[in-house]
């Protein structure tokens, strides 16, 4: 039963017709090989950065693209101890988790209001939230900083959570809105008829149906929050709550940069993102069963 649902989509070869002929298998294999080669080419710059993390700063400066003559772990120890990465990873994780939770919960509720209310006030709310996409971060920097300063939140990780939760709201509302628009309203209506309140409908009907979009929101936001640097530097730079990028980029100087250390830090920092992405992608498929398939 569930096997049927996962074959959804247009470009998938017809299932159940023609069986598993050898020809088809060879075709799949060739297709897979081609896809794998294209993928490796596509991610090769990333592999390059992992490779660089095993080489000394001097070796990178001498020949950035050469094969490593010897692999060394010294960048990792430098990045870990001098960069104070252990603590930074912890705070980055706390900030990312709290912010993403807010974005999925508040974003979903707000989108639900906008789509299902459907009146003029809801349209105004949508436009108002969309405006948040429009203003580049540097132009909002000064008032934001003064605001955080007056709230005594500079150097406090809560400031970054508030900032990320607020700044990424427009995009998550947009994602939820688009998917919610396509959801049949009948399930919700039926629940209301049965006397359920808004929160119950949200929890038992809307949240399960929107699960694939929640996965999309979380996958996208984790990376964005994890890598954001410009504002977190100002909010928690120099404090014990500095996030990973804030720590890593201290290796970039006026005229020189210790790229070996930067890439080592980066390689360590990207591992949690990869794990989260893998977990979320699994849920994307699991979520199918709970989706809006009628």
């Amino acid at each position: 039963m569930s096997a049927i649902s996962v074959w959804a989509g247009g470009a998938v070869p017809a299932r159940g017709r023609g069986g598993h002929s050898i020809q088809r298998r060879v075709g799949t294999l060739v297709g897979r090989a081609g896809l794998a080669i294209a993928t490796v080419a596509f991610v090769s710059p990333v592999l390059l950065s992992v490779e660089m993390s095993f080489r000394s700063n001097t070796a990178i400066n001498v020949a950035p693209l050469a094969w490593p003559k010897s692999l060394s772990l010294s960048n990792f120890t430098t990045a870990w101890s001098a960069g104070g990465l252990g603590q930074a990873l912890l705070w980055s994780a706390v900030i990312a988790v709290v912010s993403v939770m807010w974005l999925t919960v508040a974003g979903q509720v707000l989108a639900y209001y906008i789509v299902r209310r459907g009146n003029r006030l809801a349209s105004v709310a949508l436009l108002y939230v969309m405006a948040g996409l429009a203003f580049p971060a540097p132009s909002r920097l000064l008032p934001l900083y003064e605001l955080m300063l007056s709230l005594h939140l500079i150097g406090n990780p809560i400031s970054v959570m508030l900032f990320q939760g607020a700044t990424l709201t427009p995009l998550s509302v947009l994602i939820y809105r688009s998917f919610l628009q396509r959801m049949p309203i009948e399930y919700e209506d039926a629940a209301y008829v049965d006397g359920a309140g808004h929160l119950q409908v949200l929890r038992h009907v809307v949240v399960p149906m929107l699960w694939p979009s929640s996965v999309a929101v979380a996958s996208l936001k984790i990376g964005m929050i994890w890598n954001d640097f410009f504002t977190p530097l100002l909010l928690v730079g120099g404090s014990t709550y500095a996030t990973v990028p804030v720590k890593i980029y201290t290796f970039v100087g006026q005229y020189t940069a210790q790229w070996g250390d930067i890439f080592a830090g980066l390689t360590l920092a990207v591992i949690p993102v990869i794990i989260v992405f893998i977990l979320l992608q699994r849920h994307l498929v699991e979520g199918l069963g709970a989706g809006l398939k009628g």
Binding site: L141, Y145, Y249, V252, G253, Q254
Partner: peptide, 17 residues
């Protein structure tokens, strides 16, 4: 330690604040 590309914006904002 602040990377050079971000030094001006960060310090100026802190000083202004």
């Amino acid at each position: 330690a602040i990377p050079s590309n971000n030094y001006q914006s960060t310090l100026l904002t802190e000083l202004r604040g």
